[in-house]
Design a protein around this nucleic acid. Sequence first.
DNA 1: AAAAAAAATGTAACCGTTTACATTTTTTTG
DNA 2: CAAAAAAATGTAAACGGTTACATTTTTTTT
Lengths: 350, 350
Amino acid sequence: MATIKDVAREAKVSIATVSRVINQDDKVRDKTREHVLAVMKTLGYQVNVNARALSTQKTATLGLVVPDISDPFFACLAKGVDSIARQHQSQVLLCTAQNSSDSEQQAIDSLLQRRCDGIILYCTHLANSVLIDIVQRYSNVVVVARNIPEIAENCIYLDDELGGQLAAEHLLALGHSRFASIMSELPIEDPKHRLSGFKTALGKQALALIEEQVTYGTPDQLGGELAVNTLLKNQQIFTALFAYNDAMAIGAISALEEAGFKVPDDISVIGFDDIYLAHYSRPKLTTLHYPVEAIAKHAALLAINKHTQIDKTAHSHSYQPTLVERQSTAFTPTAAAKQSLNKNQVERQN
Amino acid sequence: MATIKDVAREAKVSIATVSRVINQDDKVRDKTREHVLAVMKTLGYQVNVNARALSTQKTATLGLVVPDISDPFFACLAKGVDSIARQHQSQVLLCTAQNSSDSEQQAIDSLLQRRCDGIILYCTHLANSVLIDIVQRYSNVVVVARNIPEIAENCIYLDDELGGQLAAEHLLALGHSRFASIMSELPIEDPKHRLSGFKTALGKQALALIEEQVTYGTPDQLGGELAVNTLLKNQQIFTALFAYNDAMAIGAISALEEAGFKVPDDISVIGFDDIYLAHYSRPKLTTLHYPVEAIAKHAALLAINKHTQIDKTAHSHSYQPTLVERQSTAFTPTAAAKQSLNKNQVERQN
DNA sequence: AAAAAAAATGTAACCGTTTACATTTTTTTG
DNA sequence: CAAAAAAATGTAAACGGTTACATTTTTTTT
């Protein structure tokens, strides 16, 4: 592949002049520039950005670590990061970590070794202490979906506790009183926070969610199916189910319908994330919207130190989920009856 | 960030020795190695792979261009490429091209500039002539989902024509005789091939698909909805619908049910790709399986010139789709009646 | 048209590695 | 224990760019 030297030789100018043409420096005579550009074209010259990075100490690269890029949630995250990268003439270097802390550590090392201008981490296995160490050493690292006090400035996360509360409040408003939940078994904090928020809101109505009504599984469709089957096998009775995410919720609906329950007529199911799966499924999922693209963008800007472009009035480091009502939740049969009674009364009054 | 010089100075050895430690060269005394490793650790040293790339002319990077990473089809493609990259101690550099040939060209340039060891392209806008030029100049470029004779050795693609045929044969076997199709409006060849195969198979039964029974849209859920609505508005009558991909098929089902048709009872819908959407949707989609991960892996190996690891007996440069029967297709009402008649007769005979 | 000022171009050091080759140190051999 | 052989370490040139500074060329001024 042609180098700057080849171009310089061919164009009979110095490499400095070629470099100026490449970098659109205006201190080049038009005639020279055109000549050099022509030579570059015939040689198919492409600047070597690795060499440039060495001398400028900038790589125009944003590193991203996610567990699995084929999961639509992370694909959306990647999309958000990519859009910021694009705005800053940068590219995304994608690392998938295969669900182990070793693999996550490796991914991070390889991004550091590439001297990414910024690094965004969605880690599900690495311990807080490791992340703290990394962020303190390398300040261009941002941690997504974790709230670690020691490195609060480099964390962007969703208020999962609030999400759990909103889910519970929605189901309570529909008249439900018997709940169950299926959560992710991964060693991260989100499921704990979501569940804790859910329980808090139930507690306010003097309702509870006991241990037997919660089962765990992998945060995907299959995990949802299995988790619901465990609930059913254990004879748990419930009319409303809170799932860790949309994929699990969809798996849950499958398993429930397989078992003869109608969603939402017999059982209401609420998901989390609001990735586009939620639209595709039948019934369309009621879920909590996770502003993942906004979070991704915020994280990316933070990572490349473009704080100025972040709308700080709108968001601190914490984002809030919002309820999206679709068709997988409904009034409980009894509540529905009451509701229609009320409606009749209202109609009669009119 | 610490450099090799810092380590050398601190460890009181030459940079060559440090380099040998980094690269696990065995010509280093154990004692020296341990000492250097210790210094590297305290300094938090990470090798600068850009500098290394300059000197070794290898970047351990695989470039990938796709239209949109949040589309699960491309996310699967990325996953396949990533898995090969991982096997070769490499990383994936992801470029999304925003549905324009300019954007695609830019993405390719930026990957060339990074001197990726191999480059995999899924381009939906760039003309064949441009791709031919690129591949002829840079032999480590592989084009996915295109069959361009001039650069056949660097193309990996699906036999879309066969896919269309299989779809038609499946619907014919279910007794259908009135067809419609919704295809992608993007300027690529896949939809043409799929439709052509579909028509060929219909032709063999002296059936046809006229122009009015085909509408076009963006290859996503919304595009599917709109395309079906156009069909319905134009009073097209059909009992079987062939969609360009699963997302359009799901959109189509939405629109059909909205219009009062039951899928598959009134109208059968067949998709294409068999991405996991196909499982999530209700009814689960009958579709043509697109071995996208296998194709991605094959392309990645080809791009990094590891021909030896490709199972050539199993696959040339062309892959074949396979029919996956799920629940979105069924016998036509009349055929269903006949079928049950046959069944009764068989039962009576027994 | 010569001198001064401005613009264009060139020279060379540097970025952080790897690696062939030179040199020094250690081990083996007789 | 000295010489030879082997092993370990160091030196310096490359890799392909950028850029401060020096030099040359062109333009402006008088």
